[in-house]
Nucleic acid binder design. Structure first.
Length: 1008
RNA sequence: GGGCGGUUAGCUCAGCUGGUUAGAGCGCCUGCCUUACAAGCAGGAUGUCGGGGGUUCGAGUCCCUCACUGCCCACCA
């Protein structure tokens, strides 16, 4: 911890930890970078593939593998997800886009994952966190296209292959920006397993998945209405479309009957699509129109030259709703999903009248080449001129926008590839959606918070086939070849030489690529090597050693925004493919082992301090790197963790972060205190045993008992017994909270323990026990004094170091940098493990509990607090000591008798008198267990005192009344559990006592 | 149009299966540079738990209803 020099290798820190060379204020910059690099360089969190042992991969062997070696699994740590399963905790990082920059959402996500991974690792599980990045089709393509535009060129003028090369170049140059930012956060991932979704091995897997689904007849190609983004010029899935309410117009347009006998008025929001109308529909029950059914109308564009002069039928279809508009609807099958369905029902032709950029595509017509919105205006004007525009009404409509480009979605009939999610495979079994539903319904996947299970189910039950093709260049190109001779399609794993149908060599590969989510939906098994490379029996070969060891993954941590995009797709594809992969023992895999993960933890959105969604346009985006630079990574991590309560969004607060930086500083200074005293001890020749409880070797020996290191030589002083009890309680609470993903509870518990218990009380008391100059100022009168002092100092310091080291381990998953730094310094260059992250997580059973000490300490704290308050009220100067008088039961007095030195130091008590009678008056206060008076002559502020007492009295009176009402209520007495009744009785008695005392004090106040 | 949340101190939020007198951090007020820490220490003030009704011996907690607010889903021209 020598910060004056150039940073030393963290593996060999300064020889001696000394308070002298520690800066007074904690400066995260001096240490964070160093440790982040150390963790990566030393490969501390890598988990190698288990040795191939055909038949039964043996995870037990992994315990001997350095360096991810952890103490044996203690009892009371994380709950095991599946019984009888290897002791592994596996987690897949939701891959950020290669184009991405770290934002607060990432940081929250990664902080939570890192806390859990570090906790599981320290709890004795082989913990594997797999990182990677996503090629993010559209986003990346856009990024490079923008770059090209700046250079005055374009994707199209470059051509497909040079463009793809260009994107790869971009990826190699900038693609690691986000993972480098991750390293800075201290994410304890296995970097040796880092993947990119377009890596060769993953591309092979994507191809394999596609081909298998095609062979199973679950992928098909067809012409359907899809959501078309005219800017990107590609189809997008339903999920990539957002809806916005806008005020629009409803146009009433007259369509004259072809026979000249009249007309019908239709209502539409999109007059321009009438160019593609092939029918008019009315409801069969609509009496206004039944007579017209079967008649032909002339498309009113007939006045225009260009082949638009056509007659279309009026037909009956349930879709037309009499109440809406005029009750008659024009039908444009190629440009509206509903109209398409009507067209299907009535075998109508589909006329595509817009090109891929949403311009009218009708050569020869006066509208040709116009943008759809320009065309609308012109058509409306023309209709009006022709006297065919009946009305224009305001109309609230919902428009569909492309999430990525913001373009108004144009429903467009086009040839796309789909995944049939509701189809029962030819070979039998369940549909993809059915498996995905069963996996959750049968409890093989658990959602936290559980309400998301409902959301998931709702969506999955109403799911449509998934359009998986995209008209992009960047992505996994669909492994299908079109034959120009017979137009058959050949789908193959390897580039085919000829058409599989007619054997023609005139084949060319499909130009579409796959939806990015198709490849990321496969990740939970493809990252572990699926489909395998061996040439064994194909199905069996799919079980790679990594899959055997790590699939299903334990957990998925993510935001709800990708619940459908990614989570649902992983469940669909995971259950579909993995059901075919045998278990390590050769038995068929069941659904429970086929799921991609056993649990899903869904976290909140990070918003700004005003609860506004962070967005670039609003300019309220909080850059995590900026905040980290300002407050330190640990402080930001701790802030996010402490605010991450399930179900509610996080309003990121800089004030909170500031508070947590103060917490880090507090710990830093507690460490300085510790090192200062270790220095003194060294100079005084006192030897302090460093704690080994958390180290791998000792942990296995002490797993069921109390560490000999902490139990002995442990001071039997009250504060020692108390702090160990608190440590045990805190460990229990933190482990419980983390089991339930209650990061907020866990963080707050540790905060309270470290600051409240350890620093505010324990450290202050321990100062009394540390005495390095036995000849001076000694409270012991005997000649053995020096010896006693040395032994007391030794045990006190040993306990202090032990407790502090445990607290560091407890905090380590939350604040990995700070704790790593101090922990290494504690061992002065000879740490018992390479990292605090490889030590054992504190367990309740690691520390002796002493309930009596807990109660005794509570009374003492109450006394000290009361005396402090009285002193303040009496206006006693801070530095001045004062005598007190106590009245209480024998037990209380007895216990306080041994704590006189503590009272003297913490409450500046110079002398203690015992009073046989109750104490009242303006210098006294009462609690349930004692009365105490500070003996100090000073006039007090009588009105203020009267006000305080009156307030108290009212409070007691109210409480007493409530309690007595309850106690005299027969049904309460008979129905309430006895513990509650007893509790209330005790409380009532105490309140009565306090009431009486307060009343007496009030009466004793001089009148004014 | 369906569905799901939220409403607790000035601010941001806890409060688990209903059970003693509702908590924390920040902010605020008062006094302290007490030799680990002023990014600190000590003391203090602050709530008809959104409104109304109900169930219960007992409701911040369960039910109904209203209000406000946020989000997700949705093919009504």
């Amino acid at each position: 911890m020598n910060h004056e020099d150039t940073p030393k290798s963290p593996a060999q820190p300064a020889d001696e930890a000394s308070a002298n060379n520690l800066p007074k204020a904690y400066d995260p910059h001096l240490i964070e970078q160093r440790w982040a690099e150390y963790w990566v360089r030393e490969r501390l969190f890598d988990v190698p593939t288990p040795a191939t042992d055909p038949g039964t991969p043996h995870l037990g062997e992994m315990w001997d593998m350095e360096p991810n070696r952890v103490p044996s699994r203690p009892t009371g740590g994380p709950r095991e997800a599946g019984k009888g399963r290897a002791n592994a905790f596996t987690l897949l990082l939701p891959p950020p886009n290669v184009t991405g920059r770290l934002h607060m959402g990432h940081m929250l996500n990664q902080t939570e994952m890192d806390i859990l991974t570090r906790w599981h690792r320290m709890s004795g599980q082989t913990s594997l966190w797999v990182p990677g990045t996503d090629h993010a089709g559209i986003a990346t393509q856009m990024m490079v296209e923008r770059q090209l535009a700046a250079e005055g060129t374009s994707r199209k003028s470059l051509g497909r292959e040079p463009f793809e090369e260009r994107v790869w170049e971009w990826k190699h140059q900038y693609g690691s920006a986000i993972t480098n930012q991750m390293r800075r956060l201290g994410a304890s991932v296995d970097w040796s397993r880092e993947y990119f979704t377009m890596d060769d091995r993953l591309s092979v897997a994507v191809k394999e998945a596609f081909v298998r689904l095609y062979e199973q007849d679950l992928i098909y190609r067809g012409s359907y209405i899809v959501n078309w983004d005219p800017i990107q010029q590609t189809a997008v899935s339903d999920l990539e479309v957002t809806h916005e309410d806008r005020l629009g117009k409803l146009y009433h347009i007259r369509y004259p009957f072809a026979d000249g006998t009249g007309s019908i008025v239709v209502a539409t929001t999109r007059p321009e699509t009438m160019l593609g109308d092939t029918a008019v529909a009315v409801n069969p029950t609509d009496a206004r129109y039944t007579a017209f059914i079967g008649k032909l109308v002339t498309l009113p564009m007939s006045a225009v030259e260009g082949g638009l002069d056509r007659e279309i039928p009026i037909l009956a279809d349930e879709w037309a709703q009499p109440e809406f508009g005029t009750g008659a609807v024009k039908v444009t099958p190629a440009h509206d999903p509903n109209d398409f369905a009507i067209g299907q029902r009535h075998a109508l032709p589909s006329l595509t009248i817009l090109d891929t950029s949403a311009h009218i595509d009708l050569p020869g017509s006066p509208y040709h080449g116009l943008d759809r919105f320009e065309a609308r205006e012109k058509i409306v004007a023309d209709l009006e001129a022709a006297g065919l525009l009946v009305a224009i009404k305001d109309h609230n409509l919902t428009i569909a926008l492309s999430q990525r480009s913001g373009a108004v979605i144009e429903p467009r009939l086009s040839l796309q590839w789909f995944l049939a999610v509701n189809k029962i495979p030819a070979a039998g079994g369940n549909s993809i959606a059915q498996n995905a539903i069963a996996a959750v319904r049968e409890g093989h996947i658990k959602f936290t918070p559980s309400m998301y299970e409902k959301t998931y189910m709702e969506w999955m039950h109403n799911i449509h086939d998934w359009c998986i093709s995209r008209q992009l260049w960047w992505g996994h190109r669909i492994p299908a070849w079109h034959c120009s001779s017979c137009s058959a399609i050949t789908v193959a794993r390897d580039i085919p030489a000829a058409c599989a149908t007619c054997n023609s060599a005139n084949i060319s590969q499909e130009t579409d690529v796959l939806d990015t989510w198709f490849s990321s939906g496969l990740l939970p098994f493809t990252v572990f090597g699926w489909p395998g490379t061996s040439n064994l029996e194909p199905q069996l070969s799919n079980l790679t050693p990594d899959l055997a060891a790590f699939y299903p993954t334990s957990l998925l941590v993510t935001g709800f925004d990708i619940l459908f995009f990614w989570v649902a797709r992983m469940i669909m594809l995971g259950t579909h493919f993995m059901l075919d992969v045998p278990m390590p023992d050769g038995s068929p895999r069941k659904l429970t082992e086929a799921v991609p993960f056993r649990e899903v933890y869904i976290h909140a959105l990070v918003r700004d301090a005003n609860r506004e969604k962070m967005s670039k346009t609003k300019g309220n985006v909080v850059d995590p790197i900026e905040i980290i630079t300002k407050y330190g990574t640990d402080a930001v991590r701790f802030t996010l963790a402490s605010m991450a309560s399930p179900g509610t969004d996080i309003a990121f607060s800089e004030a909170r972060t500031e508070g947590n930086r103060a917490f880090a500083n507090k710990i830093w200074n507690a460490a300085r205190f510790l090192f200062m005293n270790l220095d003194r001890a060294r100079q005084a020749g006192i030897e302090v045993t460093l704690p080994t409880l958390g180290t791998p070797d000792l942990a296995s020996e002490t797993r069921d008992g109390v560490s000999p290191n902490l139990a002995s030589p442990t001071s039997d002083a009250l504060e020692s017994r108390w702090i160990l009890t608190r440590l045990s309680q805190t460990s229990a609470a933190v482990n419980n909270s983390l089991s339930d993903y209650r990061f907020d509870e866990a963080a707050n518990t540790i905060y309270q323990f470290f600051w409240g218990d350890l620093c505010d009380w324990y450290l202050e008391i321990v100062k009394l026990r540390l005495n390095f100059e036995p000849t001076n100022d000694l409270p012991f009168p005997t000649s053995d004094a020096a010896e006693v002092a040395v032994s007391q100092t030794t045990t006190a310091l040993t306990t202090l170091v032990g407790v502090f080291e445990s607290a560091l381990r407890l905090l380590s998953p939350f604040m990995p940098f700070l704790t790593e730094e101090i922990w290494h310094a504690l061992y002065a260059g000879l740490p018992p493990a390479k990292s605090i992250a490889l030590t054992r997580y504190p367990q309740a059973g690691d520390y002796p509990r002493d309930e009596a000490a807990y109660v005794e300490m509570f009374t003492l704290q109450e006394l000290i607090t009361t005396v402090r308050a009285l002193r303040k009220e009496l206006g006693i100067p801070e530095k001045e000591s004062a005598p007190i008088s106590i009245h209480g039961d024998a037990k209380t007095l007895d216990s306080l008798q041994f704590s006189q030195d503590i009272l003297a130091r913490l409450a500046r008590v110079s002398r203690i008198e015992v009073s046989a009678i109750a104490l009242t008056g303006n210098n006294a206060r009462s609690t349930a267990s004692f009365d105490v008076a500070v003996l100090y002559e000073r006039t007090i502020d009588i009105p203020a005192e009267r006000e305080r007492l009156t307030k108290d009295l009212a409070k007691y009176e109210k409480g007493l009344a409530a309690a007595e009402r309850q106690l005299s209520n027969d049904s309460f007495m008979t129905k309430a559990p006895s513990a509650i009744v007893e509790g209330l009785r005790t409380q009532a008695a105490e309140t009565r006592l306090l009431y009486d005392k307060t009343k007496a004090a009030l009466d004793a106040l001089p009148a004014q």
